[in-house]
Design a protein around this nucleic acid. Structure first.
Lengths: 307, 307
DNA sequence: CGCTCTTACGGAAGTCGTAATGATT
DNA sequence: AATCATTACGACTTCCGTAAGAGCG
């Protein structure tokens, strides 16, 4: 339905090079080049600066890029909507999520969804809590799975479950049998932190950050996989929600003990959708699927199904 | 930049016929037909119902029409924005207006504007006050010149001037020398009404409508030109704002005497723009031009420049 | 020489208009 | 008969890929 130049232009703008764009598009470089030249001629303005190392967008080019992206995005949506009229769920869904649900809950739920709706292509992007909220409110994601600050804006909560901050450790640790612990009690033990340190501040308050500043850790990492390895080897204890370790907790390899403290224990993981825009057919279906999956997951946690 | 099928599809959808669309596009009917068929094949769904008297949109077709219109509209805007980068104001501007300002004020202001910005194409659409507000808030117009109800929504007021409801008549009428008159006093005279009767109700209240129901007119018309002729011939008196008769009032051919009554005398003509969407370059420029023109026009009225 | 974008040319694909065909009132 | 949409076919235009050219480090 749309002229090929839209895709060509987007590719060149993103790759910063006609050759790289032509590789991506599986089209010869000369063909791409001619379309760009013709477009510039047609609009009466250069859209790229020619540099020795490739193509850089001009101001006019940035406007054109936005238009091309909007058009292609709306067209993808149109196809999904048309399929929706026939009862077929198709299209793309982008989910912005935190690390923790991306470990077990989300892949499981997505796997179920794509089995039921093979025409849907799912993209999962891991990011900060704040970043995730912005992705949803600004349209680069259809759904978000994240903690929400008090000043949430542009998003509506479809479902939320309690997700208290815990101390995670091996079962043979001396704190492992406790019903709950305070932050102060942890200060005496070997600590593993997640970095960057301050992304959780808007959600749990200054208490945890102050503690982290006061007590030096034995290890720091921004990837949950490293944290998990270190915990399993008994290197130390870490602060995390149950979500990121649900398998290890279920199998008894790790233990999670809730932290005392109002804001630490009242953390809630929220499934959010944009409040302004209408969802796509695929986004709507995925939203409903995740909502029920999250609700039953939350119910399991409440019943304490982890042995 | 965009495939021709977008324009073809829009034309067929609007004309309800391939032949009529092909006439409008100055393209052979077979060419238009092939594009439509190819598009339906590409999307895998019929977009039109073939009826003996032409083509009717299906549900999927309605979705495609919306997409095609959005794309073409955004593209027109893009071209205007690109010109804006070079300091040239170009593009389309649509103004939704009431009858009264369309008589003298608006044509004058538009004439000045197009002289200064030859690359801009202006479209003026006359409509009801409510209709004008909706056109602006829903995007089919860039600017509005209208009365606003108390429940205004989706529009911001750029400028507004007092525009009291008056009794308009020939200078030799017995009410012509009065400083103001009440509705009741008018009941004894020959009346000319504007139709349809109820479009002003949200702005001036029930008082005027009740009066119209109680007193039969000698003539009714929905075109201001007819009203003016009748007034000039001394057929009767009419209720109108000064705006529609500014030339006749200035030259002394007609006289306007303010009506007493809170809501009748406090009517304000508002220049409005959409509150949600960003204006186009051309819309922005026209908005500023009309704002200053309206402000100085209002100042003239306040000084009583009409002899 | 490496890299980039750009241009030249022949063949493939697409689009158009004219005109004929089918279908429905 | 009149008015639709659709198909057949030849002329024209556009688009692509290969290959060669021009500028820069």
């Amino acid at each position: 339905m749309h002229a090929a130049v839209l895709r060509y232009f987007e590719a060149v703008a993103e790759e910063g090079s006609i050759r790289r764009a032509s590789d991506r598009l599986h089209i010869s470089a000369s063909a791409v080049n001619r379309q760009i030249l013709k477009l510039e001629d047609h609009l009466g303005t250069p859209l790229f600066e020619r540099r020795p190392d490739g193509m850089r967008l001009t101001d006019a080019g940035r406007l054109v890029l936005r238009h091309a992206r909007d058009t292609l995005h709306d067209f993808a949506r149109l196809r999904g909507d048309i399929d929706g009229l026939r009862g077929i769920v198709s299209g793309d869904v982008t989910i912005a999520t935190l690390d923790s649900p991306a470990v077990h809950f989300l892949p499981e739920a997505v796997a179920q969804f794509v089995a039921a709706h093979p025409a849907v292509q799912v993209r999962v992007t891991a990011c900060d809590p704040i970043e995730a909220m912005h992705s949803v409110s600004q349209g680069s994601a259809d759904l978000g799975l994240t903690f929400l600050p008090a000043w949430r804006r542009g998003v509506t909560v479809l479902e939320d479950i309690a997700c208290p901050m815990c101390v995670v450790m091996k079962p043979d640790h001396e704190l492992a049998s406790r019903a709950s612990v305070t932050l102060d009690e942890c200060g005496a033990h070997r600590l593993i932190y997640q970095a960057p340190a301050d992304t959780m501040q808007p959600f749990v308050g200054d208490e945890l950050e102050a503690f982290k500043r006061a007590h030096k850790p034995v290890a720091v990492s921004n990837t949950q996989a490293v944290l998990k390895r270190l915990l399993l080897r008994g290197v130390g204890i870490s602060f995390y929600t149950r979500l990121g370790f649900s398998e290890e907790l279920a199998s008894g390899q790790l233990v999670a003990v809730p932290l005392e403290g109002e804001r630490l224990s009242e953390l809630r993981l929220c499934l959010v959708a944009p409040s302004d825009r209408l969802p796509t057919v695929a986004g709507q279906a995925m939203g409903e699927h995740l909502r029920s999956a999250l609700a039953s997951f939350g119910a399991d946690l409440d019943r304490g199904d982890e042995p």
